[in-house]
Amino acid sequence: MQLPRFDFLQPRSLQEACSILREGNGKVSVLAGGTAFMVALRSRLHTPSAVISTKALSELSYIREASDGGLVIGAMTTLEALENSPLVANGYAVLGQAARFVGVPPIRHVATVGGNLCLDTRCIFYNQSEFWRKARPDCFKLGGDVCHAIDKGRRCLAVYQGDLAPALVALGARVRIVGVSGEKVIPLTQFYTGNGEKPNVLEPGDILAEVQIPPSSGNTWGGYEKLRVREGMDFPLAGVAVSIKTNANGAIDQARLVLGAVAPSPLEVPEATELLVGQKLTDSLLESVAQKAYDRARPVANLAVDASYRRKMVRVLVKRAIGRAVSGNG
């Protein structure tokens, strides 16, 4: 499929990039690794008048220890850099695991952290060619007023299928957003809207610049598990990230469990935290936690596999992710 025509702009600074984006008012897009964006362009899911090159953003490629002992990761850092980073491996293992699960090595070589977090939501009735989509009325995500996935559906439930976000939410990450009138730092949970049509809070003129992760203590464990049909390439059909901190007695001090790819945004399971904190892990506790996650997950029939299967698998993935975390495999 041919790319649509657009101008290619090369701003010299982040600020200039923001202004161009602002002026474009939604008709100008950022190109990072392009692994998701180019596919969307080819199928005309986006027809921007201009695309901004990443040259101006290249300063945003770094993984550093922060002054508070946490970790800061520039938005332009590649997933390959993430999976190979000793800083990430040491204390933030869930993130490295999630990165390793993305696509295939050639994709991770160019794909960026920012692009992954800004990934558009997906739906099997939306991620189709223009010809395919035109054969039926526009769905909510295309600006229409029907949903093709759910009979009489009243809003868009396209799925956020990024692998990194659940892991980062589990780690309590925040994101730094740079805009024309300055910058702000917000928790990653607030970055996502839960709205399938517009999955994140970025407004024209905003660029996601950095991810900030709070410091991790020595006995923090993490685990990420992903449902996919093939051993690579596939977006998650469900994902589970967990971060657990234990104390000297082996009891759980802190725990966060986050589901991916079952809703338009990553989904935290606070009930899991309640159940886990103060406890030592037992099989029956694990079972209850898995049940809570299952209750929260409400995938709908909008991906290539059955929704009820995806939901069932949440239970399995939760047990495995926690198992992986506590076994120190993470």
């Binding site: 093939r230 690579g232 390439m233």
Partner: peptide
């Protein structure tokens, strides 16, 4: 789909095995 559109005429949703499979 019910109206005869092929839902997975692409290599992402049509599961062609990868070398890892």
């Amino acid at each position: 789909t019910a109206n005869g559109q092929n839902l997975n005429a692409n290599f992402l949703d049509y599961w062609f095995p990868l070398s890892t499979d």
